[in-house]
């Protein structure tokens, strides 16, 4: 690894000041950054440790306002938080399957999003939950919907000097449920061949709303708005689910690589959407 300087920021403003000159990268859990420094995929002169900034460590849940999740909060603090675990089982699906125990001790959901891998497991479920990215930069703060955050493999809307501060996730409403499901050939510690994040809101046996998003089948995690919209007003049954799953399959634009072929991944999108919706529906029925 080439020489790098290390700076620890104690406020958002200090981090933005350190980042705005360029040549610097924020360091949260480091489970992607340090690997990328070592293989020189990223080549900053300075890493700015953002774990000392209060806003990036925030985990505050309110049943009416929803969840504010600091961008540097490690996965284990999410699934060890009983209120968050109860309100957002879909988020817990991803916090407990990214890497293994050691990785979950450091890796953050904010880092998974800013790393912007097409296979980033947390991103489809954030999209399904309607999460908003809260960004601070030299020109103040702004908010971007997570479905608009990633612009290509490893690329995001963040401009030089901008920092992801936190994620805002709306409060779960009555009759809502969410889930993330991925396919990997192993049982754990692997990169998704395909992944699907879904959320539904049920009312009187019909879908009031639904959001479906895919991982590993496009240059960015893919929000398939049409798949969720197709469920609105439809009865909660296998026929409705099959229509949405078919739209998700057709929306996937995967490549063939060592993890799977185009045909296989499109098929997986259909299967995972169907199974994911069934889990989300069960969770929604328990969420009275």
């Amino acid at each position: 690894m080439k020489w790098i300087d290390y700076a620890s920021a104690s406020s958002v403003q200090e981090a933005v000041d350190l980042l705005k000159g360029g040549g610097a990268r924020p360091l949260a859990g480091g489970t992607d950054l340090i690997v990328n420094l070592r293989i020189r995929r990223l080549d900053p002169d300075t890493v700015v440790d953002v774990k000392g900034i209060p806003e990036l460590n925030e985990v505050s849940y309110d049943a009416s306002k929803g969840l504010t999740l600091g961008a540097a909060v490690p996965c284990y603090k999410i699934y060890n938080n009983k209120a968050v675990a109860k309100a957002y089982p879909g988020l817990i699906d991803v916090a407990s399957l990214i890497g293994g125990t050691q990785i979950q001790g450091r890796a953050s959901i904010g880092g998974n999003l800013t790393n912007a891998a097409p296979s980033g497991d947390s991103i489809p479920v954030l999209i399904a939950l309607g999460a908003i990215a809260n960004i601070a930069g030299p020109n103040g703060t702004r908010q971007v919907a997570v479905e608009d955050f990633c612009t290509g493999p490893g690329k995001t809307v963040l401009k030089q000097g901008e920092l992801l501060v936190s994620l805002s996730i709306p409060a779960p409403v009555k009759g809502s449920g969410a889930q993330y499901m991925r396919f990997i050939p192993r049982n754990e510690m692997d990169i998704a061949v395909a992944g699907v994040g879904v959320s539904v809101v049920l009312e009187n046996g019909t879908f009031k709303s639904a959001r479906i998003s895919l991982a590993s089948v496009a240059p960015t995690p893919l929000f398939v708005k049409a798949a969720g919209d197709a469920l609105v007003g439809k009865p909660v049954n296998d026929a409705s689910i099959a229509v949405a799953a078919g739209i998700a399959r057709d929306a996937a634009k995967p490549i063939t690589d060592m993890r799977g072929t185009i045909e296989y991944r499109k098929h997986l999108c259909e299967v995972l959407t169907r199974r994911g919706l069934n889990v989300a529906i069960e969770r929604a029925k328990e969420n009275k």
């Binding site: 360091l27 489970t31 050691q102 510690m189």
Partner: peptide
Amino acid sequence: CNDGNCGACTVVFDGRIVTSCLVLGVE
């Protein structure tokens, strides 16, 4: 492996196990 996969470098870091290859010494 030196990239967080193998766990041979596991240590306890403020009460939580981590792979020490993915922690900077200054941290």
